[in-house]
Design a protein around this nucleic acid. Sequence first.
DNA 1: TCAGATATGTTATACTGTTACAAACTTGTG
DNA 2: CACAAGTTTGTAACAGTATAACATATCTGA
Lengths: 131, 131
Amino acid sequence: MSVAGLTKNQALVFDKLTAAGGPMSAYQILDNLREEGFRAPLQVYRALDKLIADGLVHKLESLNAFVACAHPEEKCGSHGLTAFAICNECGNVFEFHHHGLEHDLEHFLGAKGFKPEKTVVEIRGKCANCA
Amino acid sequence: MSVAGLTKNQALVFDKLTAAGGPMSAYQILDNLREEGFRAPLQVYRALDKLIADGLVHKLESLNAFVACAHPEEKCGSHGLTAFAICNECGNVFEFHHHGLEHDLEHFLGAKGFKPEKTVVEIRGKCANCA
DNA sequence: TCAGATATGTTATACTGTTACAAACTTGTG
DNA sequence: CACAAGTTTGTAACAGTATAACATATCTGA
């Protein structure tokens, strides 16, 4: 389950998030790891910072929540722009990579002299099951 | 400056945000409107809810901040997808509408049975002036 | 006028995230 | 081994973001 190169707390957070199979808030993670010895939010946020930097976890800005990457074995950053379709009914999150999108944005913003560093794309709506 | 159909508090918040010419947090707005009689966050959040519903103000999810629409005279919703390029250096926000982007996303997600309701697109990076 | 709807005010509280500092553990080098 | 430097973890306090619940006022139309 775990991934090489993670410290104890990072692995605990990553495993919890992977097992959940969906988004969790930092405080939900904290409460779920109290049995494992977690006491303070910082323990969660520190682990998340590293996991996000490594591309193993993504932050969903429109939910203030975190979700395990859909393909942790490959480095997520290498796929370019990561986007999420989030169902407002069931809360399911579908992660995808859309190269056309990325290319369009780069082209459009490049023409204006803007240098993208991180791009947030989150589509809220109804998934096929809930429609 | 003001827009028809707004209540007193809504107009105060909208004018403050327009005058700022950039993003403000809800609590920055609150502090800036204490002289006008604002006392509690809810006064700001309630006004923002209405302004956002009307398309006069946008929420920047990656900043937890709010910004006046770049073209309040036209109904913003009618332009489809609203996107933002946000400079991490100077904080400037550039609002734009990209129809190709919107079309691509709709096509891609439609094929999966996902029905978009609201789309968040925020590109963080360096603007031309700060690059 | 007055009843219903809308807007506002107020207090308290919940949720999200960070600062500052201390202690423990890891690692490489003499 | 010993021990210094760096990294990880622990803890407490706090800052920033957002909402719930309830009271009061204002507006609007029959």
